[in-house]
Design a protein around this nucleic acid. Structure first.
Lengths: 337, 337
DNA sequence: CACCGAGTATGAATCGTTTCAACTCGTGGG
DNA sequence: CCCACGAGTTGAAACGATTCATACTCGGTG
């Protein structure tokens, strides 16, 4: 509770508080001898700058807020990692908030981040937050959407073309001879889910004799995937799809577990049902049946988002811009032979 | 850039700043009529409290710092999730820092968190941080170790008995008839790794005719595991261990990938090599061969750590205490028939 | 010898909130 | 009719770092 302040340092070093501040923030304005003495005083007293005071004066903090849909999804931890690394380059820290696909939590995090006067917010939105982000901006806090484009281009965004990804996945299934395809995903309020589905529908429409069944799940989790997989396995063989495109890898792995773990009925992946996931998380390749998946440059998304945020905060007049990466199909055994 | 302050709110509501503050922090001290007017003014002006100013006055912030060894390891994201949830109950936010098994980053995060005057630090230490944490405490910032016990009981900790876990894993391997066991893990500066190894050694010592080989890896990652697995697979069959205990599930999954993916040599898990991991992450059960693992109550660790931190900050005189959970073996196919 | 300017150092003002002692005012008891 | 009391309200002080106009110091120049 010593609570040594800059004033204590000043008096011990025999200089004024302004000088101490200069030593720390504008070393060029200070003579070597004085700097030396001040540094000695700082270490002697174990002085640690109070960031709250600094930021009160500065008007903004040294942190970036990041809100993700699911902090347990490796895709988002990779994204966060990318953001964190890039932020560190600018001496910033990332505060990670997990909305868990819950509008209340999402909103709470926005509140907290605004009270903290974060440098900016990176958000993978769940609810309809455009209005909220608009008022945020009016009050001086920028936001960049991650993993999703701003529908009306009012905010910068870094995303991946999910429609293309969906087409890629289902196009591949069709090319390998599948005809009764199921899309497993949800909730559809998540735009990414919706767009992957749209991509799937486009691929189906472009082929002939191919059907697409939509199986909605309540969340993009392994558990939800397992339930969906069990439901599929419980059907008579003739009613089952011969291929499944899951909205992300967690769901895909849940489905895979359900299909492969039931001892009695023998459903083989990929023989009976081919399976494609989305995100290409590290664990996908280590799955029971190594999972084909649509790869997104997760860390790069986080890095780019931070870059854009830094540009925008240094020049607030900048027009919002949308960076869109292209996804890439990774074929493994779950759709192979 | 409106930067509406509490003063603006006060003048618009026709009251003093003290009253506005009371409306927000001590509603009981304020008449209903005035509270009403103040709330109206707040919404009219879109006032958002400046947390920096609040915390400057209060002397501490509303955040908790958490430093983990590897933010990509599901064990730690689960732990973080537990901490985050519990913190939210007290209106706090968790700042997540990833040391990535790097002393410099770890130290930087400690610096940043101290400047931010966080409520407390939860840390899964990598380097030798006791001295550092000691000075932190002297200056008023408490720390709680997570996933590791404080050797000299100077800090509270929430951990799991890693020696017991190691014994559990290797005991199980021995009980199922394995005799040439390998422990794959590292770096040994990570105490958890060291203790799991110790547990393994104890189990081996308690049996007869069982050997334990130590294979060191540079990090607890899938990649490191894969290299180790490849090295094992490259040996002549007679030189290979008949069981492997991996220091965590990431390493185990890497090993599994290496053993199962090489087309030529046919090594079967568990027939030729049984495999046990550690942490029982969600993905372990979905692995190529569902992975036996030692389960830790990850989220509970995070929750408990926050609880302890809250207790200690509200009563700084409290003696440090160590909560130790017991691990649990989960048997799946990788060590089964 | 007075004056200049570059190079340094000073310290009061400032950021926005919370706290707290002091004040106001209406009410009920004596 | 006065006083004491309590509930409600006020406004200035404090938190600690940064900024910036001001002041000081010296060596050099006209």
């Amino acid at each position: 509770m010593a609570a040594t302040s800059i004033r204590d340092v000043a008096s011990r070093a025999g200089v004024s508080v302004g000088t101490v501040s200069n030593v720390m923030n504008h070393p060029d304005k200070v003579s070597a001898a004085v700097a030396e003495r001040v540094h000695a005083a700082i270490t002697d007293l174990g002085f640690v700058r109070n960031d709250a005071a600094r930021q009160l004066r500065a008007g903004h903090s040294r942190t970036i807020g990041l809100i993700v849909l699911d902090s347990r999804n490796p895709f988002f931890t990779d994204l966060a990692r990318g953001a964190e690394d890039r932020a560190a380059d600018s001496g910033l820290v990332v505060m990670l908030g997990n909305s868990g696909e819950d509008v209340a939590r999402e909103s709470t995090y926005l509140d907290v981040f605004e009270e903290q006067r974060v440098r900016g917010v990176l958000i993978s939105p769940f609810g309809d937050v455009t209005a909220r982000l608009e008022t945020l901006r009016q009050r001086g806090t920028r936001a960049v959407l991650v993993d999703r484009q701003s529908e009306d281009a009012r905010f910068s965004s870094v995303s991946v073309d999910d429609v293309a990804g969906g087409s890629l996945a289902v196009g591949h299934l069709i090319a390998t001879g599948r005809r009764r395809i199921a899309f497993v995903g949800g909730p559809f309020e998540i735009r990414q889910v919706w767009e992957r589905r749209r991509g799937a529908e486009m691929a189906v429409a472009a082929a002939s004799g191919v059907s697409l069944e939509i199986i909605e799940v309540p969340a993009l989790t392994v558990l939800a995937g397992r339930s969906a997989g069990e439901a599929i396995a419980a059907r008579p063989a003739a009613d089952r799809p011969d291929a499944v495109f899951a909205a992300n890898d967690l769901v895909a792995m849940g489905i895979l577990q359900a299909l492969t773990m039931r001892g009695s009925t023998d459903i083989s992946v990929p023989r009976d049902i081919a399976l494609v996931g989305y995100d290409d998380i590290d664990f996908a390749r280590a799955a029971v049946v190594p999972l084909s998946s649509v790869r997104q440059p997760s860390a790069l998304i986080g890095q780019t988002a931070v870059d854009i945020l830094m540009e925008e905060t240094s020049d607030p007049a900048l027009e919002p811009r949308a960076v869109v990466f292209q996804p890439e199909l990774v074929v493994r055994e779950s759709t192979g032979t």
